[in-house]
């Protein structure tokens, strides 16, 4: 709190979780990789625009005797990818990776888990897989389902809750000016009056349920809707659900009354 002590602090350590790309590498031969990348990206030199990446070797069949890190890294850097660490790498290759200034992360990425803030988050999923233009479709292990986050008190204007990796249940509703975000679905018992965003990491099957519908904005997997002209009569102040219908690129938000007694 005291400002004076802040000035004295030249370095400060804070927990942070950040989304990084994983590049799942199935071949360590720089020449073959270069060909594959060229095919995939058409030689666009700045494709990754300096994005940090973790190199994942889980799908590497048999680990080679040694890896030419210099060649591999310079290849990836040519596309402006910034490799920062490796994971799932065979033990005998660790030293080489370290010499190449790469962080060696554990298989379940404890390094990524440790800095995550207080709420015990289960192993954070390795970056938005679907959006990753990685050399190969990165199919890392499914993250364990996150526990549902339950909020007992009314959520007030200016407050924000994020249910990382799972569902969010509000037991006392939310006020205008508050915001709830869930990677899964949102269940709101009581007034839903702020901004509600479900499926925040792209889950199109997520839904929003409320017993008293009246939000400022709803969004599912990035498809959003505001209510400039008021909430539709059929659902205003009543039980309602929001979900995505249609497929692929033709998603539409559908808001329907909830049938309940």
């Amino acid at each position: 709190m005291a400002d004076a002590s802040l000035q004295g602090k030249l370095i400060e350590f804070k927990g942070a979780s950040l989304a990084v790309m994983t590049a799942s590498i199935r071949d360590t031969d720089a020449v073959r990789l270069a060909d594959a990348l060229h095919m995939m990206l058409g030689g666009m030199p700045d494709f990754f625009a300096g994005e940090p990446a973790i190199l994942d070797f889980a799908q590497l069949g048999n680990a080679p005797e040694r890896v030419d890190w210099t060649a591999l890294l310079s290849l990836l850097r040519r596309y402006q990818l910034q490799p920062v660490g490796v994971r799932n790498l065979a033990e005998h290759l660790h030293d080489g990776a370290r010499r190449a200034n790469l962080a060696v992360l554990g298989p379940d990425s404890p390094a990524a888990e440790r800095p995550v803030a207080p709420p015990p988050a289960p192993a954070p999923a390795p970056a938005p897989v679907a959006e990753t233009p990685a050399p190969a479709p990165a199919a890392t292990a499914e993250p364990a389902p996150a526990p549902t986050l339950v909020v007992d008190r009314p959520l007030r204007s200016g407050q924000q809750v994020y249910a990382k990796g799972g569902d969010l249940v509000l037991l006392a509703g939310m006020s205008p000016g508050s915001e709830i975000i869930a990677d899964g679905s949102i269940h709101c018992y009581g007034p839903l009056r702020g901004r509600a965003l479900a499926g925040a990491r792209g889950d199109t099957s997520a839904r929003i349920f409320s017993t008293n519908f009246g939000p400022e904005l709803v969004s599912i997997a990035g498809v959003y809707r505001t209510f400039d002209r008021g909430i539709p009569q059929a659902v205003a102040g009543r039980g309602a659900q929001v979900r995505l219908t249609g497929s692929d690129n033709l998603h539409t938000l559908e808001i329907t009354p909830l049938q309940h007694d």
Binding site: R153, P154, R156, S157, G158, Q159, S175, P176, G177
Partner: peptide, 24 residues
């Protein structure tokens, strides 16, 4: 009303009782 709502949120997050997890 909106501002009162905001201050209620701050009360829930910044008061000593909230920070120490005592009765609200």
């Amino acid at each position: 009303v909106r501002d009162s709502d905001r201050i209620l949120g701050i009360l829930q997050s910044k008061s000593r009782r909230a920070i120490e997890g005592r009765e609200a």
